[in-house]
Each structure stands twice: as structure tokens, then as C-alpha cells.
Design a binder for these strands. Structure first.
Lengths: 330, 330
DNA sequence: CCTATCGATGTAATCGATTACATCAGAAGC
DNA sequence: GCTTCTGATGTAATCGATTACATCGATAGG
């Protein structure tokens, strides 16, 4: 920078101002500086700026595993806004190992990032709370109500209810539910929505029809197999993920039964392959990209102290009707 | 840091040494320093260190779109090694817009990253060459041989050949190929492998059996539909991606034909859903996670000047035989 | 006993920008 | 004509660690 200043015949302060606050520099001087910058092919050293300003224009995204399409879609949304607003995205893959996140928390304390978006951390409440009190943090898409922190979530209760309702409306009375791991709020909420729909429909919840899965294809397969082994199997199943729904369907088919004729299935997530699978999956579509965008937007407000209180945004899932539930609208 | 120094009764230099080169500090002093660090809950400011050392311990991964499973698997591998070696991973999503990469290139010039891994950039040769001459760069999984830069690639010619060979061995003579976009080397190589297999088998390449797709489900569907509309449709198809293979199968089924009975299909990539799809897909599995790990390892060597020449690593794909080709080994 | 060497530590320059404060010329107001 | 204000620019402190060099005491060798 001093080279540029020398060549332009001004001080380094003027060079800096030309780049950061052009309006405070005379047009003529500005031109000289720009000419010198171009002549020397000068690029500011961002590290020095960051040190002085104590900001990095970088945010950290902690994700259980980036290979999972649900998370990578959210990251896509985060990245879109980050780019637009001049932020960089640092990826923190925990591979489901909770302790890994403590390494990432140090990034904060070392001022390596200005903020953080946590995707499903399983971090103990007090730890997260302490962190959120001190640093800008947004949690998505699974957040516990017990921590005061900004969140971007899905209305999982309502979504679970609407998925189940759809099956009720189609005339099903024995509707099973294969939930996600019940240690996360989203799974609990979807289960709750399922129960609400049944109760509000005037029926009783049969707990033998509820099985806990872990969102994977194979857990869906096994849960469904267990349901089929009972004396009175369900006529419909609401699964908390599309992967589990596919597993369930595979299990149903393996018994020589047909979907949706013998058993109707509704999934959750609307992953890419849900419209490729046979039968195509009726599912609750989460606006994941949108949610990622919102999470980043909220985080930036927080970083700039534009929003002092924590904010909560709740999105609605969209019911996408395809073949697996037995009705196709055109 | 000066607070720590004061409390421990030493200079800042000693504090720094205690953390960076503990062996040069007397055990007793070291203890005093550690005690002071703990008492004050001190964390070094990494920005200052970076500025002084002119290194960021951060690498940039430029990826066309992170939502694509092929890329996110490679990123997973990169991330694994990065973590192990104390590097952070900055994500650069280009969303297939080539010009976006120029923004990321500035990161280099501004010394925001120590190195870069490029996943399928479509960057013009001269630009990439200039960059590679000046900075540590690794290209994967699609690289042009015309640029001198370290690469981690798949042997796409051999892979295409083996996939096609497998179909030849099963007795097929009219084998079609649905390629990826032919502007990238991997697609050209897979096509070349396909042609080699046919020629070496003693047959002739029929160019009406070659269709260009773009790796997507729908392009596979359309390419297959076009093939089925010809007077003598193929009895087997080798697709350059699993997604296209699924599209092709959907097209075949929509004509009332059966896979593999009427037409055998082989895919490429071994994405997660290839074993869920019906029929399960025979496919060439790329060791994507491994390739990501290797790319990062090579990059680190380059950053540390351990490897002065550019290096090239070529991986082999593994043929995974499932239902869609008509033979199942147990 | 003196000097060379070494180990442990301190002093202060350094990385490269940003920015509070100082300076100065010229315009405006009285 | 003198003061005051304003706009443009320069001077130098600053961010917080790292590290070349300096210092000093102790030990070893002669």
C-alpha cells in the first residue's frame, strides 16, 4: 500500500480512504490513486484489515454431514446470501461427533469468524446458551425452545398433522408413523402432529403403530417390517423422512403387497429422488434453500446489531401429492 | 497476551514461545504461563498470527454446486483431511457460473487462503495455468491434460471401457451410450472408453447409438426415449451417471419394456439411491471420498513446498453389479 | 580464573491496513 | 481584515501476535 501511496504522491491514509470511503477523497486524487493501484496491480491484504477492524466477514456453518442432501440444500441457501452480502462460508463438518463442535467454538473465541449457523448440533443447552449470549448465532432447522437463540425452523407439528390429515381424508383409519430419532425436536413435533391429527379426527392413537427410526432407508425398512408382522397391519404410514418412506415401501413390496393399493405412504423432505422413485412419493416439502437464506439473513442482522432480540422464523411445509398415497391430482 | 505476560511475570515473547515452541521454554516458566492463560481464559487472536505469518491455514474449495451429491462427497473427503491437519475449508459455490470463480481467485491475491481445490471449474486454460504457477492448486475430479497442475482424477477411459465390456460379456451387441456434457474431459473419456471396448471386442461403433446428456435424470429420460424411437433400439445402455441411468430406465418402463430383461442398463457414480432404485443399479463406483482426501493431502504438500513438481493421481472405479444389467453375483 | 558457548528470556521491530487526530488551505461570515 | 468553519490530506498510533536480535547468567573447557 505504501508503494501505491508513493507512486500516487499521497499518504497511505488517502489510499485507504480511496478504497473504503471514496466520497471523502477529491475526484482528482482518487484518479491518481486508482491509476497507481492499477499500475502496481495492487490488492489489499485482507488479513491486516481484519486485524484492525476485528472482523472477518466469515461465518461458520456447523453441519452434521455435508453429504446429506437436506443439509447441503440449506448450506446452498446460506451460501447464496453470504455471497451476495460479501461473507465467506467456513464449513464445519462434525460427522455427528458432538465433541467436534467444541473445536469450532474456539474459532469464535479466536475471532476467526463473525458468526455461526448451527445445523443440528446436539450441543447441551447451557453450552449453546452461553455461546449465544456472547456471539451471533442462528440455529436451524432443528431447535429447542429451551434456549434463547435466533432460530429458523419448520412448523413440524403442523406438517405432521397435515400429512396425517391427508391420509385420514383418503379414508385411512389405521395409520402408522415411523418417526425420526426422537432425541431431536423435529421428530418429536412430527410425531405430535401425527397424534393431534388422529385425535382431532375423532380417533384413538394406537401406540403399537408408532415406530422410531433414524431417518435412514434401512431403518424405514425395518420399522415397516415390524409393523407388517403385527396381527392387524396399518393401511397407511406417515414417515418422517423420504428415505425412510422408501425403505418402508421396499419392505411392503417385499411382502408382495402394493403401494398405494394395499398400503399408502407419505414421506417428508421432498428429496430429489422422491419423484424418481416408484411409486413417486407423496411428501411434505421443506423449503430448505429458503430456510438457509433466511438463517443467513438473520445472522447478518445480528452481526450488525440491527436485531437486538433473538428472532424466530417458522416456515410451513408444502404437501406434494404424488402416487404413493393413492390419489393423483393433475 | 500482554495481560497473560504480566500475570505470569514474563514477556509476551515468552508467552508466545510457550504456545508455539514449548521446548524452548523452561518447564517452570511454562507452568507459570499456562496458569496465567487459564486464569485469564486467554485465547490467541488468530488474525494477528496470520498477519505476521502470512498464512491462513485455510483452503478454498470451488464447487459448481454443493447440493450435488458427487461434489458433496468429495468435499467430505477434503474436509476430513483438512480437519486432521489443522486446516479450515472455505466453500466457494459457483452455481455453474464461471465468472463467479474470478471472485474467489481474488481471495488468493488477497492472501485469504493458502491453497485451492477446484472441482470442475470450466476455467479457461491460460487463466488456470497462470494461477497454478503462482499458487498451490489441485484440480479434481475433472481435469484437462493441457494444464500443468496437480490433479486427482478417475481413469474414466478404463471405467467406460469396463462398464461397456461388462455388457459385451453378457452377450449384448447393440449397446448405446448416454454421455455427460461433452465439454468436460470425464465425459469425453467415458465415451472413448465405451468406443474402445466395442472396437476391441471386434465390433463397430454405431454413432446413432451415442446420445449426449447433461448428467440429469431428465436428460437421461429424453436420450433414452430418442434411442427407443429408432428402428432398431439397443439391447443395453451405458449411462455416464446414475441419475441419467434412472431417467433412462424410467423411459424404458414407460414403453412397457422391462429392465434388465428387454434392455440392460449400467450407470456411473454409485450414488446412494442406486441401491434403492428399482431395479437396483449396476454402476461404476467412484471413490469420491478417497479422491477428496487425496486432493487435500496433495494440496498440503504443495503448500508446504514438500512437492515441487505437480503430481497426478489416477483412481480406478469399481464395477458394482446389481439388478439393472441382468446378472447378480452373490 | 578467564573466555567461549549455550540456554532462557527480554526488547522491540514487524506484518499491512485503518482511523483518530492534526494540519492546512480556502471559503464564508461578520 | 480577521475569525471560524469545512473539506482534503497527512501523521502516527493501533490491532495482537511473532521473531530477529540483544542480553545475561551459568556452565564447560582451557
Amino acid at each position: 500500500m505504501s508503494d501505491v501511496a508513493k507512486l500516487a504522491g499521497v499518504s497511505t491514509a488517502t489510499v485507504s480512504r480511496t478504497l473504503q470511503n471514496p466520497e471523502t477523497v477529491k475526484e482528482e486524487t482518487r484518479q491518481k490513486v486508482f491509476k497507481a493501484i492499477k499500475a502496481l496491480d495492487y490488492m489489499p491484504n485482507v488479513l491486516a484489515r481484519q486485524l484492525r477492524r476485528m472482523e472477518t466477514k466469515t461465518i461458520l456453518v456447523v453441519v452434521p454431514n455435508i453429504e446429506n442432501n437436506v443439509f447441503s440444500q440449506i448450506v446452498g441457501g446460506i451460501d447464496a446470501v453470504a455471497n451476495e452480502r460479501g461473507y465467506k462460508v467456513l464449513l464445519g463438518n462434525t460427522n455427528h461427533r458432538v465433541e467436534k463442535i467444541y473445536d469450532y467454538i474456539d474459532h469464535f473465541k479466536q475471532r476467526q469468524v463473525d458468526g455461526m449457523i448451527v445445523l443440528l448440533s446436539n450441543l447441551p443447552d447451557p453450552v449453546l446458551q452461553d455461546l449465544a449470549n456472547e456471539f451471533p448465532i442462528v440455529v436451524t432447522p432443528d431447535a429447542k425452545a429451551t434456549v434463547e437463540v435466533s432460530t429458523v425452523t419448520l412448523d413440524n407439528v403442523e406438517s405432521g398433522k397435515r400429512a396425517t390429515d391427508h391420509l385420514l381424508k383418503l379414508g385411512h383409519r389405521r395409520i402408522a408413523h415411523i418417526s425420526g430419532t426422537l432425541d431431536i425436536t423435529s421428530s418429536q413435533d412430527r410425531l405430535q402432529g401425527y397424534q393431534q391429527a388422529i385425535v382431532e379426527g375423532g380417533y384413538f392413537v394406537d401406540h403399537t403403530l408408532i415406530k422410531e427410526g433414524d431417518f435412514t432407508f434401512s431403518s424405514g425398512f425395518e420399522a415397516m417390517s415390524a409393523l407388517l408382522n403385527t396381527s392387524v397391519p396399518p393401511t397407511a404410514v406417515f414417515c418422517a423422512s423420504d428415505e425412510m418412506a422408501m425403505g418402508a415401501i421396499k419392505s411392503i413390496k417385499s411382502r408382495g403387497l402394493k403401494v398405494p393399493d394395499d398400503i399408502a405412504v407419505v414421506g417428508f423432505d421432498n428429496i430429489k429422488f422422491s419423484e424418481v422413485f416408484e411409486p413417486t412419493l407423496t411428501t411434505m416439502a421443506q423449503p430448505l434453500f429458503q430456510m438457509g437464506k433466511k438463517a443467513m439473513t438473520v445472522l447478518i442482522e445480528r452481526i450488525n446489531n440491527e436485531a437486538l432480540e433473538e428472532q424466530h422464523f417458522i416456515y410451513q411445509a408444502e404437501l406434494i401429492v404424488r402416487e404413493s398415497c393413492g390419489v393423483i391430482f393433475r
